[in-house]
């Protein structure tokens, strides 16, 4: 289970847009810069970060839903970053996505059964005769009874709709699913149900997940490895255990300390980040985090920190971190 499923190198995405009252000026959003990582078959790789950090853009670029501006994405050895839609189509079946909002991703005029049958027929995965049995099995996979096949999306609760959205992704018999904030819109008690469902399905079908989320506590429970992004760049990527027990990047540390803990007596020293995320229209020079970083030095303002592996599988992009046992946290400014 260590074979790379997807190898991503130097992936970047820029959006050109027109600004000003009459669109007289052009501007560029640096949504994703120099993203390098490997997705291993059978794992859950999570991406976390605040809004606008590029985590969803990464998911979209991997699936070629956004055409990347630069870099390469190799899926099982095949370069897919520049493929056109016709060439992508055979791969689409294996690469699926589940979105945040199950309200807007299902066609309100299709029954659940029709919505599930559509991708099965499109990819020729079953004959018309086998279809009902197939739909029933998919519904059972996501914990719904067969009678749901005749219902419409508006008759379902949010959690049930998200189950249908997952079933629809499963209908294609995928290998890789991007879960783009797939549980963020759900209530706590339902969220736990869906998380467990995702874990069950992964076990059963050997799925690989790219799990995009902003809730760090959720990510900790579901992930094998976690990548932390800030303003379009990876700040840190590590096995989940290491990232949460020994975070190295100052941004990861601040992010973790900002997460509220369900314990009124929790007396953690909360490290407050001042200010807000700068605009991706005009990202800071050097390390993008330097404007909010408590330990930023001159080097951080001028040079982009290198992406270094400081411990086995633990990558960090920070001038102050050179080795896990050699953290230059003190003695700066």
């Amino acid at each position: 289970m260590t074979a790379p499923l997807i190898e991503i190198a130097g992936l970047s995405k820029r959006f050109d847009l027109r600004v000003g009252a009459f669109g007289e000026r052009s501007a560029t959003v640096h949504a994703l810069d120099d993203f390098t990582a490997t997705v291993i078959e059978g794992e859950t790789l999570s991406l976390v970060g605040e809004s606008g950090c590029g985590k969803s853009t990464t998911g979209f670029c991997l699936l070629n839903l956004h055409r990347p501006t630069g870099g390469s994405v190799r899926y099982r050895g095949q370069e897919i970053a520049g493929l056109d839609e016709d060439a992508m189509r055979p791969l689409r079946r294996e690469l699926q996505i589940v979105f945040q909002d199950p309200y807007s991703t299902l066609n309100p005029r299709m029954t659940i059964g029709e919505a599930l049958a559509e991708p099965i027929l499109f990819h020729g995965l079953a004959t018309k005769a086998d279809l009902p049995a197939r739909v029933t099995r998919l519904l059972a996979d996501v914990g719904l009874t067969p009678r749901f096949a005749n219902r419409y999306p508006h008759e379902l609760s949010g959690g049930q709709r998200q189950r249908v959205a997952i079933a629809r992704a499963l209908a294609c018999e995928p290998r890789f699913i991007v879960c783009d904030e797939a549980i963020s819109a759900l209530d706590v008690s339902v969220q736990a149900q869906i998380l467990n469902l995702l874990l069950d399905l992964q076990e059963k079908y050997g799925l690989t997940y790219l799990f995009i989320a902003h809730d760090l506590a959720v990510v900790r429970h579901i992930s094998d490895r976690v990548g932390v992004m800030y303003l379009g760049r990876l700040a840190e990527l590590a096995p989940a255990g290491a990232l949460f027990s020994q975070p190295m990047h100052p941004y990861t540390r601040a992010l973790l300390s900002a997460v509220p803990e369900p314990d009124p007596k929790s007396a953690r020293s909360r490290q407050r980040l001042q200010g807000e995320v700068p605009s991706p229209l005009n990202p800071p020079q050097g390390c993008r985090f330097h404007t909010r970083c408590p330990i930023a030095r001159d080097a951080c303002r001028s040079a982009v920190p290198a992406w270094r592996e400081v411990a086995t599988g633990h990558h960090v992009a920070c001038h102050a971190v050179s080795a896990p046992d050699k953290l230059n946290w003190e003695g700066t400014e």
Binding site: G159, S189, Q193, A217, A240, P262
Partner: peptide, 24 residues
């Protein structure tokens, strides 16, 4: 109790099934 149990946290054991409340 169900709500509190289903909360994922940063402390404690990770990578296990969260207890969840069945139904809606």
């Amino acid at each position: 109790r169900g709500l509190l149990a289903s909360l994922p946290t940063l402390a404690g054991a990770a990578m296990e099934r969260l207890p969840s409340i069945g139904g809606t």
